[in-house]
Structure formats: structure tokens, C-alpha cells
């Protein structure tokens, strides 16, 4: 288990990363979903992983979360190699994943969801039972601390908005001692205001000393909170850069496919020069008459 040498402290920060992937890859049969992934996630750091649909983001998350073992490379936590066989094991090492669509059980009350899998119990022997009062109080307090004031802690999670669900899931992971928080497209299905709420808690989580892995395909959201950016394309790392070496435009460019996008723009310009130009020209003036008609 310990034949791999311990990870050297990170050159940039002088601290050992909490979580590190070295040359990690994953194949399903003859399909290489992922290869050559190198990633370091330290405390108080938001690492954004960007990529288009099918780029291999989900596979990467599932490896980090302990759902799949990688088929090549090494996965290290606190410098020691690990081989997780279940998400529970990853959780026990402080690596918590908040999934976009399966963060919560919709029909269960908020407080039951909050403590699901880590219930507080009292009593002993066959009469060990849930400490309902304490769990409800803690869930309520923790959510209030994060500025979420839910109408009813007993309401099923299905009654919450998408953003509220994500924040409840984040609050849960943080309360249960997560050191690295993996967020799988937390803003993908959300409106502008809801996304803002979630981004605020990503920042709050970093300030509380957590490492955050933020998976998204929105470069604007990523750039607002990220310290380090990784772009994945066709299962490989296309970009790996700190914030200091990158502008939002660069990131958007990489994310959108870089050279491919240039070619696409060129192509579209040639195909439909007239409508594009007409719309651009007409837009500022056209807005007023439409508003008046209504």
C-alpha cells in the first residue's frame, strides 16, 4: 500500500495538497474515458474543472469521490496512496461530493436528508434510536448560519428550490467535516440569482479552510470563484493554469474549444453574413418599439 513515495509538498504554497492525482486514467473496456490527469487540491483553494459534455468530467469526479477506482495512475490523500471502494471511504477521509441531481432524497424532510448516512443516535442496544430533536435543531442552526432560512425543516426537500438544495448539501458536507468538497455542476440548472447564492457558498467554504473542486461548463461562474483552472477535453487535460496566468477571455476561449471555436466562427460568418450583421445593427433600436407594443 505504501510503496509509492509520499507526495512532496507543493512548490507554490509550501503545503502538502490534501488530495492529489498523478497521471490518473480510466478505461472502460477499450474506451479510454480519461488519461494523464494530474491534479492537486489544497486547503483554501478552489480548483475549477471545466469541459464540454462528454469530456470526462463525470468520470473524473467519480474517481475522486470513490465510486470508481482509476485503471492507471495514483490517487493520494495527504500524501499517501488510497484505493477507495465506496463513497463512504472517501467521505471518511474528508472528501465529500455534492452531486447536481442526486444530492438529496426529494421526498424526505430537510433534516433527515441533512443527517442521512450519519445519523445521531441515543440509547443503546436494540433501542438505539434517532435523536430527532437534536438533529432537527442542528440542521436548523447550520442552515441559518449559512443564511438559509427555510420555512419548515420538516418540509420535503422536493419543496426547495434547486439552489437551496445545493446549499443544504454543501452545508451538510461542511458540517460533517469535509476537507475537500467536490461540487458537480452545482449551477448548471439554476437561474442567475440561485447561481449567485451557490457561488457565494463556494467562496464561504474556501474561507472556512476547505479545498473545493468545482465542476462546471460555465467559465464565467468558474472565474468568479476559482484559484486554479483545469480544462478537460476528450479525456485529457487541455489547460492547467493558476488564476494569475489566465484571463476570463482566455478561459472562455479554452472552454469553448479554442481553435475549434475560431474555425466555427469563421464558418458561420461566411455562411450567414447578412442576418448576423443585421441583428447586431438593429438590436439597440429595435428594443424600444417592441416594448411599446406590449
Amino acid at each position: 500500500m505504501t510503496d509509492t513515495p509520499a507526495a512532496a509538498p507543493d512548490k507554490d504554497t509550501g503545503r502538502q495538497p490534501v488530495l492529489e492525482l498523478r497521471d490518473v486514467g480510466k478505461s472502460f473496456g477499450n474506451i479510454r474515458a480519461l488519461s494523464g490527469i494530474n491534479l492537486k487540491v489544497g486547503a483554501e483553494e478552489v480548483t475549477c474543472i471545466l469541459g464540454d459534455n462528454g469530456a470526462g468530467k463525470s468520470t473524473l469526479i467519480k474517481i475522486i469521490a470513490g465510486l470508481y477506482p482509476p485503471t492507471e495512475g495514483a490517487y493520494l490523500v495527504d500524501g499517501g496512496p488510497v484505493a477507495f471502494t465506496s463513497p463512504r471511504e472517501a467521505l471518511d477521509r474528508g472528501i465529500a461530493t455534492v452531486y447536481q441531481d442526486l444530492a438529496m432524497v426529494p421526498l424526505m424532510p430537510v433534516w433527515r436528508n441533512f443527517f442521512l448516512g450519519s445519523e445521531i443516535r441515543t440509547g443503546f442496544g436494540p433501542f438505539r434510536m434517532l435523536d430527532v430533536r437534536r438533529m432537527r435543531r442542528i440542521a436548523d442552526e447550520e442552515l441559518k448560519k449559512m443564511g438559509i432560512d427555510l420555512p419548515d425543516i420538516d418540509a420535503p426537500v422536493a419543496n426547495l428550490s434547486g439552489g437551496q438544495r445545493q446549499v443544504v448539501a454543501i452545508a451538510r458536507a461542511v458540517y460533517f467535516g469535509a476537507r475537500v468538497l467536490i461540487l458537480d455542476e452545482p449551477t448548471a440548472a439554476l437561474g442567475v440569482k440561485q447561481s449567485g447564492v451557490v457561488l457565494k457558498y463556494i467562496k464561504a467554504a474556501r474561507e472556512a479552510g476547505l479545498g473545493v473542486i468545482f465542476i462546471t461548463h460555465n467559465p464565467h461562474h468558474a472565474y468568479m470563484v476559482g484559484d486554479h483552472f483545469v480544462v478537460i477535453k476528450l479525456g485529457r487535460m487541455e489547460l492547467d493554469a493558476p488564476r494569475s496566468a489566465l484571463s476570463l477571455d482566455d478561459l472562455a476561449h479554452h472552454m469553448a474549444g479554442g481553435a475549434e471555436l475560431d474555425a466555427l466562427q469563421h464558418e458561420l460568418k461566411q455562411d450567414q453574413p447578412a442576418p448576423a450583421a443585421a441583428r447586431q445593427g438593429a438590436e439597440p433600436g429595435a428594443a424600444t418599439p417592441v416594448a411599446q407594443e406590449e
Partner: peptide, 27 residues
């Protein structure tokens, strides 16, 4: 009593409501 007040009861609701979510939090 088991359903409403024990951990197993919580898990029963969870695996029925969303088995994947339950698995993701270690049930």
C-alpha cells in the same frame, strides 16, 4: 417505531426515495 425513529428507518425511506442519493452519502 423503526421507520420513524431509527437509523434503519431513515435508510428505508432513503433507498426507496432515491437509491443513488442514499448510496452517495454512504447508506
Amino acid at each position: 417505531w423503526v421507520l420513524a425513529r431509527t437509523r434503519v428507518g431513515n435508510w428505508i425511506y432513503a433507498v426507496g426515495g432515491s437509491a443513488e442519493s442514499a448510496r452517495a452519502v454512504g447508506v
